[in-house]
Protein backbone atom coordinates (compact mmCIF):
# COMPACT_ATOMS: atom_id res chain seq x y z
CA UNK A 1 0.00 0.00 0.00
CA UNK A 2 1.06 3.53 -0.61
CA UNK A 3 1.67 5.71 2.39
CA UNK A 4 -1.19 8.08 1.75
CA UNK A 5 -2.48 10.35 4.45
CA UNK A 6 -6.09 9.62 5.19
CA UNK A 7 -8.55 12.26 6.32
CA UNK A 8 -9.25 11.03 9.82
CA UNK A 9 -10.49 13.27 12.57
CA UNK A 10 -8.17 13.76 15.47
CA UNK A 11 -9.28 11.42 18.25
CA UNK A 12 -11.20 13.11 21.00
CA UNK A 13 -8.75 11.96 23.57
CA UNK A 14 -9.77 12.57 27.16
CA UNK A 15 -12.85 14.28 25.88
CA UNK A 16 -14.77 12.99 28.88
CA UNK A 17 -12.23 14.44 31.28
CA UNK A 18 -12.25 17.80 29.52
CA UNK A 19 -16.00 17.98 29.49
CA UNK A 20 -16.07 17.01 33.17
CA UNK A 21 -13.62 19.79 34.00
CA UNK A 22 -15.79 22.28 32.12
CA UNK A 23 -18.81 21.22 34.16
CA UNK A 24 -16.80 21.42 37.35
CA UNK A 25 -15.67 24.92 36.40
CA UNK A 26 -19.28 25.88 35.77
CA UNK A 27 -20.29 24.55 39.17
CA UNK A 28 -17.47 26.40 40.96
CA UNK A 29 -18.31 29.58 39.04
CA UNK A 30 -21.95 29.31 40.15
CA UNK A 31 -20.85 28.84 43.75
CA UNK A 32 -18.54 31.85 43.65
CA UNK A 33 -21.18 34.09 42.10
CA UNK A 34 -23.82 32.97 44.59
CA UNK A 35 -21.43 33.43 47.53
CA UNK A 36 -20.84 37.01 46.45
CA UNK A 37 -24.45 37.73 45.56
CA UNK A 38 -26.11 36.38 48.69
CA UNK A 39 -24.87 36.35 52.27
CA UNK A 40 -26.56 33.07 53.14
CA UNK A 41 -25.30 30.86 50.30
CA UNK A 42 -21.89 30.13 51.76
CA UNK A 43 -23.27 29.26 55.19
CA UNK A 44 -22.56 25.74 56.39
CA UNK A 45 -26.24 25.03 56.78
CA UNK A 46 -27.11 26.01 53.24
CA UNK A 47 -24.23 24.09 51.70
CA UNK A 48 -25.22 20.99 53.66
CA UNK A 49 -28.80 21.41 52.48
CA UNK A 50 -27.69 21.81 48.87
CA UNK A 51 -25.53 18.71 49.07
CA UNK A 52 -28.40 16.69 50.55
CA UNK A 53 -30.82 17.72 47.83
CA UNK A 54 -28.29 17.25 45.03
CA UNK A 55 -27.15 13.89 46.34
CA UNK A 56 -30.43 12.14 45.82
CA UNK A 57 -30.87 13.35 42.24
CA UNK A 58 -27.21 12.50 41.60
CA UNK A 59 -27.64 8.87 42.61
CA UNK A 60 -30.74 8.52 40.44
CA UNK A 61 -28.90 10.15 37.56
CA UNK A 62 -26.14 7.54 37.72
CA UNK A 63 -28.63 4.70 37.33
CA UNK A 64 -30.46 6.63 34.64
CA UNK A 65 -27.18 7.10 32.76
CA UNK A 66 -26.59 3.35 32.53
CA UNK A 67 -29.98 3.01 30.87
CA UNK A 68 -29.50 5.97 28.52
CA UNK A 69 -26.10 4.63 27.40
CA UNK A 70 -27.87 1.50 26.12
CA UNK A 71 -30.09 3.79 24.09
CA UNK A 72 -33.06 3.45 26.46
CA UNK A 73 -34.77 5.65 29.02
CA UNK A 74 -36.19 5.00 32.50
CA UNK A 75 -39.15 7.26 33.24
CA UNK A 76 -40.17 5.29 36.32
CA UNK A 77 -37.39 6.32 38.70
CA UNK A 78 -39.34 9.11 40.42
CA UNK A 79 -42.24 6.75 41.07
CA UNK A 80 -39.83 4.06 42.29
CA UNK A 81 -38.42 6.55 44.82
CA UNK A 82 -41.92 7.33 46.12
CA UNK A 83 -42.88 3.66 46.20
CA UNK A 84 -39.66 2.77 48.02
CA UNK A 85 -40.39 5.30 50.75
CA UNK A 86 -43.69 3.49 51.35
CA UNK A 87 -42.11 0.04 51.43
CA UNK A 88 -39.31 0.98 53.78
CA UNK A 89 -41.72 2.91 56.04
CA UNK A 90 -44.19 0.00 56.24
CA UNK A 91 -41.42 -2.50 56.98
CA UNK A 92 -39.77 -0.41 59.69
CA UNK A 93 -43.08 0.35 61.34
CA UNK A 94 -43.87 -3.38 61.28
CA UNK A 95 -40.81 -3.94 63.40
CA UNK A 96 -38.50 -5.34 60.76
CA UNK A 97 -34.85 -4.59 61.59
CA UNK A 98 -33.64 -1.51 59.73
CA UNK A 99 -30.93 -3.28 57.74
CA UNK A 100 -33.43 -5.89 56.58
CA UNK A 101 -36.03 -3.26 55.73
CA UNK A 102 -33.46 -1.42 53.60
CA UNK A 103 -32.31 -4.63 51.92
CA UNK A 104 -35.89 -5.64 51.13
CA UNK A 105 -36.63 -2.19 49.68
CA UNK A 106 -33.54 -2.38 47.49
CA UNK A 107 -34.69 -5.80 46.27
CA UNK A 108 -38.05 -4.28 45.35
CA UNK A 109 -36.11 -1.77 43.20
CA UNK A 110 -34.21 -4.63 41.60
CA UNK A 111 -37.47 -6.46 40.90
CA UNK A 112 -38.97 -3.37 39.24
CA UNK A 113 -35.87 -3.01 37.08
CA UNK A 114 -36.02 -6.69 36.13
CA UNK A 115 -39.63 -6.20 35.12
CA UNK A 116 -38.59 -3.36 32.84
CA UNK A 117 -35.95 -5.61 31.31
CA UNK A 118 -38.56 -8.30 30.82
CA UNK A 119 -40.95 -5.89 29.13
CA UNK A 120 -38.28 -4.63 26.76
CA UNK A 121 -36.49 -7.88 25.98
CA UNK A 122 -39.27 -10.46 26.14
CA UNK A 123 -42.38 -8.46 25.29
CA UNK A 124 -40.66 -6.16 22.84
CA UNK A 125 -42.04 -2.97 24.38
CA UNK A 126 -40.20 0.31 23.84
CA UNK A 127 -38.40 1.45 27.04
CA UNK A 128 -40.36 4.70 27.00
CA UNK A 129 -43.66 2.81 27.16
CA UNK A 130 -42.86 0.15 29.74
CA UNK A 131 -41.30 2.64 32.16
CA UNK A 132 -44.12 5.13 31.59
CA UNK A 133 -46.55 2.34 32.50
CA UNK A 134 -44.73 1.52 35.74
CA UNK A 135 -44.45 5.23 36.52
CA UNK A 136 -48.19 5.56 36.74
CA UNK A 137 -48.96 2.08 38.16
CA UNK A 138 -46.39 2.31 40.96
CA UNK A 139 -47.90 5.55 42.17
CA UNK A 140 -51.29 3.83 42.09
CA UNK A 141 -50.10 0.74 43.96
CA UNK A 142 -48.45 2.95 46.56
CA UNK A 143 -51.63 4.94 47.05
CA UNK A 144 -53.64 1.73 47.40
CA UNK A 145 -51.22 0.39 50.03
CA UNK A 146 -51.38 3.59 52.06
CA UNK A 147 -54.96 4.62 51.36
CA UNK A 148 -53.47 7.87 50.17
CA UNK A 149 -52.05 8.70 53.60
CA UNK A 150 -48.48 9.41 54.62
CA UNK A 151 -46.86 6.90 56.95
CA UNK A 152 -44.85 8.41 59.76
CA UNK A 153 -41.72 6.39 60.38
CA UNK A 154 -41.37 5.61 64.07
CA UNK A 155 -37.65 4.96 64.16
CA UNK A 156 -35.39 7.79 65.15
CA UNK A 157 -32.19 5.92 64.41
CA UNK A 158 -33.38 5.49 60.81
CA UNK A 159 -34.38 9.09 60.26
CA UNK A 160 -31.30 10.44 62.03
CA UNK A 161 -29.05 9.03 59.33
CA UNK A 162 -30.06 11.45 56.62
CA UNK A 163 -29.76 14.45 58.88
CA UNK A 164 -26.36 13.61 60.31
CA UNK A 165 -22.94 14.32 59.00
CA UNK A 166 -19.65 12.49 59.04
CA UNK A 167 -16.48 14.60 59.37
CA UNK A 168 -18.48 17.67 58.48
CA UNK A 169 -20.01 16.32 55.30
CA UNK A 170 -23.66 15.26 55.19
CA UNK A 171 -24.17 11.50 55.22
CA UNK A 172 -26.24 11.76 52.05
CA UNK A 173 -23.24 13.11 50.19
CA UNK A 174 -21.15 10.19 51.39
CA UNK A 175 -23.78 7.99 49.79
CA UNK A 176 -23.01 9.62 46.44
CA UNK A 177 -19.40 8.57 46.86
CA UNK A 178 -20.50 5.11 47.97
CA UNK A 179 -22.50 4.73 44.75
CA UNK A 180 -20.25 6.77 42.46
CA UNK A 181 -16.98 4.89 42.89
CA UNK A 182 -18.33 1.39 42.20
CA UNK A 183 -20.43 2.86 39.38
CA UNK A 184 -17.31 4.40 37.84
CA UNK A 185 -15.36 1.15 38.07
CA UNK A 186 -18.31 -0.75 36.66
CA UNK A 187 -18.87 1.58 33.70
CA UNK A 188 -15.28 2.28 32.67
CA UNK A 189 -13.25 -0.66 33.93
CA UNK A 190 -15.44 -3.72 33.65
CA UNK A 191 -16.52 -5.58 30.55
CA UNK A 192 -20.19 -5.10 31.45
CA UNK A 193 -19.63 -1.37 31.18
CA UNK A 194 -18.14 -1.84 27.73
CA UNK A 195 -21.16 -3.93 26.76
CA UNK A 196 -23.52 -1.13 27.84
CA UNK A 197 -21.76 1.14 25.37
CA UNK A 198 -21.61 -1.44 22.59
CA UNK A 199 -25.30 -2.35 22.92
CA UNK A 200 -26.19 1.34 22.85
CA UNK A 201 -24.07 1.85 19.77
CA UNK A 202 -25.13 -1.19 17.76
CA UNK A 203 -27.06 -4.03 19.39
CA UNK A 204 -26.85 -6.26 16.32
CA UNK A 205 -23.08 -5.93 15.98
CA UNK A 206 -22.75 -6.63 19.70
CA UNK A 207 -24.90 -9.75 19.43
CA UNK A 208 -22.87 -11.05 16.53
CA UNK A 209 -19.73 -10.40 18.57
CA UNK A 210 -21.01 -12.64 21.34
CA UNK A 211 -22.29 -9.98 23.71
CA UNK A 212 -25.36 -11.10 25.63
CA UNK A 213 -27.53 -8.15 24.63
CA UNK A 214 -30.59 -9.21 26.63
CA UNK A 215 -28.64 -9.63 29.82
CA UNK A 216 -27.01 -6.23 29.28
CA UNK A 217 -30.41 -4.57 28.99
CA UNK A 218 -31.72 -6.36 32.09
CA UNK A 219 -28.63 -5.18 33.93
CA UNK A 220 -29.03 -1.52 32.97
CA UNK A 221 -32.66 -1.28 34.11
CA UNK A 222 -32.02 -3.31 37.23
CA UNK A 223 -29.23 -0.94 38.26
CA UNK A 224 -31.46 2.04 37.56
CA UNK A 225 -34.24 0.52 39.69
CA UNK A 226 -31.73 -0.26 42.43
CA UNK A 227 -30.39 3.30 42.48
CA UNK A 228 -33.92 4.71 42.60
CA UNK A 229 -34.95 2.40 45.47
CA UNK A 230 -31.80 3.42 47.34
CA UNK A 231 -32.74 7.07 46.90
CA UNK A 232 -36.20 6.16 48.19
CA UNK A 233 -34.64 4.82 51.38
CA UNK A 234 -32.56 8.00 51.76
CA UNK A 235 -35.57 10.22 51.13
CA UNK A 236 -37.71 8.32 53.64
CA UNK A 237 -34.97 8.80 56.22
CA UNK A 238 -34.68 12.48 55.40
CA UNK A 239 -38.35 13.42 55.62
CA UNK A 240 -39.34 10.69 58.08
CA UNK A 241 -42.39 9.55 56.16
CA UNK A 242 -43.39 7.09 53.50
CA UNK A 243 -45.54 8.64 50.80
CA UNK A 244 -46.09 7.32 47.28
CA UNK A 245 -46.54 10.78 45.79
CA UNK A 246 -43.07 11.89 46.85
CA UNK A 247 -40.40 12.61 44.28
CA UNK A 248 -42.86 13.78 41.66
CA UNK A 249 -40.98 14.78 38.53
CA UNK A 250 -37.63 13.58 39.81
CA UNK A 251 -37.25 11.31 36.79
CA UNK A 252 -37.01 14.41 34.63
CA UNK A 253 -34.42 15.93 36.94
CA UNK A 254 -32.42 12.72 36.79
CA UNK A 255 -32.60 12.66 32.99
CA UNK A 256 -31.71 16.37 32.84
CA UNK A 257 -28.71 15.82 35.14
CA UNK A 258 -27.54 12.97 32.96
CA UNK A 259 -27.90 14.97 29.77
CA UNK A 260 -26.23 18.06 31.23
CA UNK A 261 -23.46 15.69 32.26
CA UNK A 262 -22.77 14.80 28.65
CA UNK A 263 -24.87 11.65 28.20
CA UNK A 264 -26.26 11.28 24.69
CA UNK A 265 -29.91 10.30 24.46
CA UNK A 266 -28.96 8.42 21.28
CA UNK A 267 -26.90 6.04 23.40
CA UNK A 268 -23.28 4.96 23.62
CA UNK A 269 -22.00 8.24 25.11
CA UNK A 270 -21.83 8.91 28.82
CA UNK A 271 -19.86 8.82 32.04
CA UNK A 272 -20.41 8.65 35.79
CA UNK A 273 -18.85 11.94 36.84
CA UNK A 274 -20.90 13.91 34.28
CA UNK A 275 -24.34 13.14 35.72
CA UNK A 276 -23.05 13.68 39.26
CA UNK A 277 -21.83 17.15 38.35
CA UNK A 278 -25.02 17.76 36.38
CA UNK A 279 -27.15 16.95 39.42
CA UNK A 280 -25.23 19.37 41.64
CA UNK A 281 -25.37 22.10 39.01
CA UNK A 282 -29.15 21.75 38.93
CA UNK A 283 -29.34 21.69 42.73
CA UNK A 284 -27.18 24.81 42.91
CA UNK A 285 -29.36 26.68 40.46
CA UNK A 286 -32.50 25.81 42.40
CA UNK A 287 -30.88 26.65 45.71
CA UNK A 288 -29.44 29.92 44.44
CA UNK A 289 -32.72 30.93 42.86
CA UNK A 290 -34.45 30.40 46.21
CA UNK A 291 -31.91 32.52 48.02
CA UNK A 292 -32.17 35.26 45.42
CA UNK A 293 -35.94 35.18 45.77
CA UNK A 294 -36.38 34.26 42.16
CA UNK A 295 -39.88 33.04 41.48
CA UNK A 296 -39.75 29.23 41.64
CA UNK A 297 -41.49 29.06 38.29
CA UNK A 298 -38.41 30.67 36.79
CA UNK A 299 -36.25 27.86 38.13
CA UNK A 300 -37.97 25.45 35.82
CA UNK A 301 -37.46 27.75 32.88
CA UNK A 302 -33.79 28.21 33.74
CA UNK A 303 -33.33 24.44 33.96
CA UNK A 304 -34.86 24.04 30.53
CA UNK A 305 -32.67 26.73 29.03
CA UNK A 306 -29.59 25.21 30.62
CA UNK A 307 -30.32 21.83 29.06
CA UNK A 308 -30.62 23.40 25.62
CA UNK A 309 -27.43 25.45 25.98
CA UNK A 310 -25.22 22.67 27.35
CA UNK A 311 -26.40 20.01 24.93
CA UNK A 312 -26.04 22.45 22.05
CA UNK A 313 -22.44 23.29 22.91
CA UNK A 314 -21.65 19.66 23.59
CA UNK A 315 -23.02 18.79 20.15
CA UNK A 316 -20.88 21.49 18.56
CA UNK A 317 -17.76 20.13 20.20
CA UNK A 318 -18.52 16.55 19.27
CA UNK A 319 -18.92 17.55 15.66
CA UNK A 320 -15.49 19.11 16.03
CA UNK A 321 -16.34 22.69 15.21
Amino acid sequence: MSTEVIPVEKPKRNYNVLFGLTLLALLVLLWIILSLATPSFASGNNIANLLRQGSMIAIMAVGQTFVIITGGIDLSVGAVVGFATVIVALLINAGVPIWLAILATLLVGVAIGMFHGFGIVKMGLPPFIITLATLTSLRGIGLLMTNGNSININSDSFTAFSRNSFIGIPNLFWMVILVGIPAYVFLHHSRWGRYLFSVGSNAEASRLSGVNVQRTIYMAYTLSGLCAAFVGVLLAARIGIGNPTQAEGWELQAIASSVIGGTSLFGAVGSVHGPLLGAFILATINNGANLLNVNSFWQRIITGALIIIIVYFDGLRRRGK
Binding site: P11, S198, S201, A205, S209, V269
Partner: peptide
Protein backbone atom coordinates in the same frame (compact mmCIF):
# COMPACT_ATOMS: atom_id res chain seq x y z
CA UNK B 1 -25.84 -2.29 10.49
CA UNK B 2 -24.35 -5.49 11.83
CA UNK B 3 -20.60 -5.23 12.04
CA UNK B 4 -19.51 -2.11 13.87
CA UNK B 5 -20.27 0.14 16.77
CA UNK B 6 -19.60 3.22 14.69
CA UNK B 7 -19.64 5.86 17.42
CA UNK B 8 -17.28 3.92 19.66
CA UNK B 9 -13.49 3.72 19.51
CA UNK B 10 -11.63 1.39 17.15
CA UNK B 11 -10.03 -0.33 20.14
CA UNK B 12 -13.36 -1.18 21.74
CA UNK B 13 -14.65 -2.59 18.49
CA UNK B 14 -11.60 -4.79 18.07
CA UNK B 15 -11.76 -6.09 21.63
CA UNK B 16 -15.51 -6.65 21.82
Amino acid sequence: DQGLCLNLPVGLNLNL
